[in-house]
Structures are given as structure tokens and as C-alpha cells.
């Protein structure tokens, strides 16, 4: 360990606690006028955003099968062409009408969450010429979750791309792949439930 560039340590995580809605989605907590009455990440798309409109709904279940009502869920995704709206994106120009990030509460009464977004394009895999199947990166924080959880949502109709996806392929337990693939509802609508623990536990990632 000579001259390691890592001279500081990441702060330890602490749970978001029961009132994360106050800080991240204040209207949900009853602070109706805070931040202009709209939380960051509430609208992912506008009229000019390119790509196929999709909506995603779901719930996050604890180990007893109870939906979590005091959590937040965030998505991060590429645009329709597979570009990320980030200064780190050097391959091309991302859609100026798409930030690629959304955040929603799990509903305080039902636990349901919903996103209106567009279907992302395929993206490159690490420093290789392989591609990843279209997917959304997902992050979950809530009371009782000591370190925010990373997972992904893939698309059920992308059978071929999913079969070749380098992340899905490296899962030791291939019988868990289905926890990362959304269920089709009607046109453009998907259901994606997240199970924190137990039967059909969602695959979570160390990224």
C-alpha cells in the first residue's frame, strides 16, 4: 500500500429512517408548498423527450410480504439512444429533454410507486464491445435499510438481448434472473416489484 490515491474513507451509511419523504419528496409528507410543490425527479419526461413512453408500477415488499410505505425509489437510465445525460458521457450527445433520473415515494397508504419514462437504448458493457440489454438502474432507501440497495429492471420483450446480457449472465443462480425482469401489463405498462427478503428475494448489486 504505497501512495494509495485513496486517502479518505467514504462516510458510513445510516438508514433513511421513517421520514425520508420529508427530505426527498416533501409533498408526500404533507409539506405541500415546499420546493414549489414539486419534488426533484417527479417528472422524467416532457413532450419533446425522444423514445417510447413507458410506465412502471410496483411495490417493495419486506420479508413478511408487507409493502413498504415509508421508502423512496430512484431510477437512473440511458436515453432512447443509449446515451447518459452526464458529463461522463463521451460517446455522443444525450437527449436534452431527458435527465434520465427519477425519484418517487412508495405511497404512504398503499406502498405503490409509479414512474412515467421512456424505454432506454442498449448501453456498452465496461471497456468492451459488448452491449448490455436495455435496463434501468434502481436504488432503494427506507427505514430498516441500513445501506441503500442497488438493483436493475430489465424488459420482458428483450429476450435475445437479456440472454446475451453480461450482468444477467454472470448471476450464479440463474433461477433468480426473473426477479430483475419486469412483468408486462398492457401496452407500454410494466409491473416491477422488489422483494427485500425471503422467497423470490430480488437480486441486489454491489456496484
Amino acid at each position: 500500500m504505497v501512495n494509495s490515491p485513496q486517502i479518505l474513507q467514504e462516510l458510513p451509511s445510516q438508514t433513511a429512517g421513517p421520514y425520508v419523504h420529508i427530505g426527498c419528496v416533501p409533498k408526500t409528507a404533507g409539506l405541500d408548498t415546499m420546493y414549489g410543490g414539486q419534488h426533484l425527479g417527479s417528472q422524467m419526461i416532457n413532450d419533446k423527450t425522444l423514445g417510447t413512453r413507458i410506465s412502471i408500477e410496483g411495490k417493495i415488499y419486506d420479508g413478511t410480504g408487507t409493502p413498504i410505505k415509508d421508502g423512496i425509489i430512484e431510477v437512473w437510465q440511458a436515453d432512447a439512444q443509449g446515451f447518459f445525460c452526464s458529463p461522463e458521457e463521451k460517446r455522443g450527445k444525450p437527449d436534452q429533454n431527458f435527465r434520465g433520473w427519477g425519484r418517487q415515494p412508495t405511497d404512504r397508504l398503499t406502498g405503490a410507486f409509479q414512474f412515467e419514462t421512456i424505454k432506454p437504448g442498449k448501453t456498452p458493457y465496461m471497456a468492451t464491445d459488448k452491449f448490455q440489454a436495455p435496463h434501468l438502474s434502481i436504488w432503494v432507501a427506507a427505514r430498516g435499510v441500513n445501506l441503500g440497495l442497488h438493483t436493475r429492471m430489465y424488459f420482458p420483450e428483450e429476450v435475445e438481448a437479456n440472454d446475451k446480457d453480461p450482468i444477467l449472465n454472470r448471476l450464479e443462480h440463474q433461477n433468480r434472473v426473473h426477479t430483475l425482469i419486469a412483468k408486462p401489463l398492457s401496452d407500454g405498462k410494466y409491473q416491477f416489484d422488489i422483494v427485500l427478503q425471503g422467497h423470490n428475494e430480488t437480486v441486489f448489486f454491489d456496484v
Binding site: 413498504i68 445525460c85 458529463p87 438502474s137 427506507a142 430498516g144 454472470r170 448489486f205
Partner: peptide
Amino acid sequence: YKSSIVRSPKLALVSIGNGLSELTGPV
């Protein structure tokens, strides 16, 4: 911390390293 008992994944996190999805983030 009792809330963590039923909200903790029991299976190992799958380590995937960082691609563009992880290196980029919202601005």
C-alpha cells in the same frame, strides 16, 4: 435495530463493478 430484521436481504449482493450506468449519474 429491529426495523432491519425483515428489511435486510439475506442473500449476498452480486458484485458487478462499474460500467457507464454506475459511473454516470444525474446532474
